[in-house]
Design a protein around this nucleic acid. Structure first.
Length: 562
RNA sequence: UGGGGCGUAGCCAAGCGGUUAAGGCACCGGGUUUUGAUCCCGGUAUUCGGAGGUUCGAGUCCUCCCGCCCCAGCCA
């Protein structure tokens, strides 16, 4: 096959194009990237996009990707978050090897660089208050004014900065500022603050410091110290790039990494910012950061999403500079695709309706063989008990059903998956409410295994569970957290006004097959004809199983009914 | 009214001056099916925010216009 077309691969995004070019021209022998979260909260699906990008590039181009905690603000950071973030990155399938770093690792070097900046007359200690600073900064359209302290001598600055470091001054009384240009149209260049006084305990450096460097100053230097080649961040940092470059151009550093910005992820029917996710937790709208409705990595994990499905999603949505809104359906599609291949099939009844098979012998239990995955024989089979009394899904019966309803009605015949054909003969109703409480059916013994020797066909195949042996359980059904695509769209309406009151429905009378009784938390299965479910890792216990519905199967019947 | 970005289908997204504008999701048909699932086949932009211009040739280059996003933390 000499003329065969190459297999079409996903085209390279603009960042990978830059990396490819830099490797080709020999600018770098190999790429070095980093994922730099601040340990002040849990990772969400937006972080996953960045993780897949940074670690993805490293592995695709034979480079390295470091995990760096950007911990320059002790007021918000905690060790617990560090641990959770490490777990999440690992769970997503990425490995930083020995390359675990903290911005706080560089506090000494950063301080020395600051001294250097002062000596080069490129930084000064400023005594302006926060309010004064704001006034002096100017506005978007008007230039700022220079600080009265801008022209202090090197010696004076050195002395004051050391005083800041030594704890001689109170919080807010002094800051160290870069001396750039108060008239710059880019506000970030108007003598930005690079060190502030904070009398706070740091989760790693303890009480060693009472001054802490700001992001803009720290990030570029950390990148340079680690000899990062491509420093990838989100679009809102575009305006910070001139400052990033200014610091590295002004100081002598081993390398000058290239900052490249890409669009952050927006998903419909959810919110993404840590601040808002935090509010949902604090106000009790969700149980915790790992509530299965949360788009946090831990929430997705608990919900039953697989690492592969999240990686696939990140690959699918691509990397660009356009602010985009990805439909939730794309994420859901990615789990379905993965779970369709990997999840064993089992029977689960969400809303049980009893069926008595009147011509089936009492006291008999027979074994029915069921495939664990019809498309993959290697996954083997299991045995299901079958008996006179079974449960089926309530929605699989309808009185006076329309012709297109392929399930049960009086006089209609369906197949019980892997078992027998049954025909509904009569209905038992509650005398007061009129509610259907039981079905009486007959079965055809000739149809064992699900085929009729006479060749007759049935339109519908339904799932079922033997009444005696079925395992009772709780199933939690989830819907999108918000009722509208973009809960943040309207500035006058708080996003919480758009919460979906029905985002969680707990079903307490569900049944699953006995084979699941000993399954481990986190186990993902497909309940045939229903969807994908996983055993909850927090609340499920032997004898009191709790399942989370990860996502439903596509349902063209439900769609038709609308 | 300053600066920095971005506009290709309902949602993403390829396209890098030269055949009929990739692909995915969604949607609509049809086939297979012991899951109304999966799978398979087919359909869906005479047109790239708009208007001019350059060119034999423009989604790609130029000009102007329009729309959207980000920036005035001692947060990251």
């Amino acid at each position: 096959m000499s003329n065969s077309e190459p297999i079409t691969e996903k085209p390279l995004d603009f960042i990978r194009q830059i990396v490819t070019e830099d490797l080709k021209t020999g600018k770098h022998p190999t790429p070095v990237t980093r994922f730099p979260p601040e340990p002040n909260g849990f990772l969400h699906i937006g972080h996953a996009k960045s993780i897949c990008l940074n670690f993805g590039i490293a592995s695709e181009f034979n480079g390295r990707c470091y995990l760096r905690f950007d911990d320059t603000n002790p007021s918000k950071e905690e060790t617990a978050y560090v641990q959770a973030i490490k777990e999440d990155v690992k769970w997503l399938g990425f490995d930083w090897g020995d390359n675990l770093f903290y911005s706080s690792d560089y506090f000494d070097q950063l301080y020395d660089f600051a001294l250097d900046l002062i000596r080069r007359k490129k930084a000064f200690v400023c005594d302006l208050s926060a309010d004064e600073m704001r006034e002096y900064r100017g506005t978007l359209t008007e230039p700022g004014k220079e600080s009265p302290h801008r022209n202090r001598t090197v010696e004076e600055n050195l002395e004051l900065f050391q005083g800041m470091k030594n704890g001689d001054f109170s919080e807010g009384s002094h800051v160290l500022r870069a001396k750039i240009d108060m008239a710059s149209p880019n506000l970030n260049m108007r003598d930005p603050i690079i060190y502030r006084i904070m009398n706070l305990h740091h989760h790693r450096t303890g009480d060693k410091w009472c001054i802490y460097p700001m992001y803009d100053y720290t990030h570029c230097l950390s990148d340079a110290i680690e000899e990062i080649t491509h420093s990838l961040c989100t679009l809102e940092f575009e305006d910070h790039r001139p400052l990033y470059d200014w610091v590295l151009d002004t100081l002598e550093t081993p390398v000058h990494p290239q900052q490249i910005e890409f669009a952050r992820l927006n998903l419909t029917y959810t919110v993404m910012s840590k601040r808002k996710l935090m509010q949902l937790v604090q106000d009790g709208h969700v149980s915790d950061w790992d509530d299965p409705r949360m788009l946090t990595v831990s929430g997705l994990r608990r919900r039953g999403y697989t690492p592969a499905s999240i990686r696939d999603f990140c690959k699918e949505i691509g990397i660009g500079k356009k602010e985009s809104w990805i439909d939730m359906g794309v994420l859901e599609n990615c789990v379905r695709n993965d779970l369709n291949i990997t999840a064993p099939r089992v029977m689960g009844v969400l809303d049980p309706l009893k069926v008595v098979i009147t011509n089936y012998p009492e006291g008999t239990v027979e074994d029915i063989e069921a495939k664990n995955h019809p498309q993959n024989p290697e996954m083997g089979s299991r045995t299901l008990p079958f008996s006179r009394e079974i449960y089926i899904e309530r929605t699989d019966f309808m009185e006076n059903a329309p012709k297109k309803f392929f399930r049960l009605d009086i006089g209609r015949e369906v197949r019980l998956r892997y078992a027998y054909f049954i025909t509904c003969v009569s209905v038992v109703k509650d005398e007061d409410s009129g509610e259907v409480i039981e079905l009486h059916c007959t079965y055809d013994p000739e149809t064992y295994g699900g085929n009729a020797p006479d060749g007759r066909k049935v339109k519908g195949t339904i799932h079922w569970l033997s009444a005696e042996q079925a395992e009772r359980c709780e199933i939690r059904m989830y819907d999108r957290l918000f009722k509208v695509e973009n809960p943040d769209a309207d500035k006058d309406v708080n996003f919480k006004e758009h919460l979906n009151p029905d985002s969680l429905t707990s079903l307490n009378n569900c049944l699953v097959e006995p084979s699941l009784a000993d399954a481990k938390p986190g186990t993902c299965v497909q309940f045939e004809r229903q969807g994908y479910f996983c055993i909850d890792s927090r609340d499920s216990k032997p004898g009191a199983l709790v399942f989370n519905r990860t996502v439903g199967l596509r349902d063209s019947w439900a769609k038709r009914k609308k």
